[in-house]
């Protein structure tokens, strides 16, 4: 939840830190890139490709990609990573510390904790993806509308976003859960709605930045139609920072969703969502340290990785 602050400042600080295209030095032209892909999709593909290439040179980034890739695989094919069943335990094996057989130890019902983390990743990551998608789609649309139409539309939308920002996002999510009800899908939607304002703000500031760029001015004075400008100049050039924010929001959503499910608003028990796994270990803090520590560490690693990748996107796009 404290990430809200970082998202807040990112556009401004970034703009100040990297003066934009003018910064690229005349003496040292950038390596030739394939200009054949055009449009926002091509730009995103290129960005991902560059980041992948970059990650080979930076061990930290490489590790981040590896962590996130692994958890995605956990979600897709959990059986490939563990042979223990997530929901049935062996009562005799209850509360065993981590070992070669049970990597993360076992819980009070003798269930393998690693298996529960692996199988829980599908729920956690799907909820995260829903949350980011809700925020991204709604927020970008509002931000683009505000930044491109301007005038009173801009004022109205952004005042509303200011109000949403005035309420801490966790509290906003909780208010939404009160009316939507409990469950994984509902907390995902609630978290997504709480992040709309961030996406709207960055999309607006990006479309304003690009919209007032000299090259857009040049296009306008050359008689290019506004929708062509939007499609060919504004969207592709704004895509990078929005993608960076998406990665950051992914991390934030993992945190928020695990917090909400820790508080008990997620899927009801046997389900093994990451946050509820930590909550389940609360009663065994003294007897079984691993029940809280290890699932929590997985969450932290995923969030750290998402933030690291977001950072890589930011430095990429600001070049």
């Amino acid at each position: 939840m404290s990430q809200q602050l970082l998202r807040e400042t990112d556009p401004d600080l970034l703009a100040a830190e990297y003066p934009g295209p003018a910064a690229s030095s005349e003496e040292f032209p950038a390596a030739p890139e394939n200009p054949r892909w055009s449009g926002a999709a091509g730009h995103i593909l290129r960005l991902l490709q560059q980041t992948a290439r970059q990650s080979l040179r930076q061990p930290g980034l490489f590790l981040a990609v590896l962590v996130l890739g692994t958890t995605l695989l956990w979600a897709a094919v959990p059986a490939a990573f563990t042979s223990w069943p997530p929901d049935t335990g062996i009562p005799a094996d209850r509360l065993l510390p981590p070992s070669a057989t049970h990597w993360f130890g076992t819980d009070s019902l003798g269930r393998d904790l690693f298996s529960r983390v692996v199988h829980g990743s599908a729920t956690s990551l799907a909820a995260t993806a829903v949350a980011v998608a809700v925020g991204l789609v709604a927020g970008s649309a509002l931000g683009l509308l505000a930044g491109f139409v301007r005038g009173w539309v801009d004022d109205a939308i952004m005042r509303l976003m200011d109000v949403l920002l005035a309420i801490p996002s966790l509290l906003l999510s909780l208010a939404l859960i009160t009316v939507l009800g409990f469950g994984t899908v509902n907390i995902a939607i609630a978290v997504g709605v709480a992040s709309v304002a961030n996406f709207a703000r960055i999309m607006r500031s990006e479309s304003l930045r690009v919209g007032t760029a000299v090259y857009v001015e040049a296009a306008r004075s050359a008689g290019v139609r506004w929708h062509t400008i939007l499609l060919r100049h504004v969207l592709p050039n704004a895509a990078g920072p929005v993608l960076a924010l998406s990665a950051l929001e992914f991390g934030a959503a993992v945190l928020s969703i695990s917090s909400l499910s820790f508080l008990g608003f997620g899927a009801p028990p046997p389900a093994s969502e990451w946050g509820s796994l930590v909550a389940g270990g609360r009663d065994y803090l003294v007897a079984a340290w691993w029940l809280v520590t290890l699932p929590g560490a997985v969450i932290a690693a995923v969030v750290l990785s998402a933030n690291r990748i977001s950072h890589a996107f930011q430095t990429r796009t600001s070049r």
Partner: peptide, 19 residues
């Protein structure tokens, strides 16, 4: 507009970096 065109000051900012 097609009959009057413009060249701006900054050669860095006046071209879309992705074009």
């Amino acid at each position: 507009r097609r009959r009057f065109q413009v060249v701006f000051q900054s050669p860095f900012a006046s071209l879309d970096p992705r074009f």
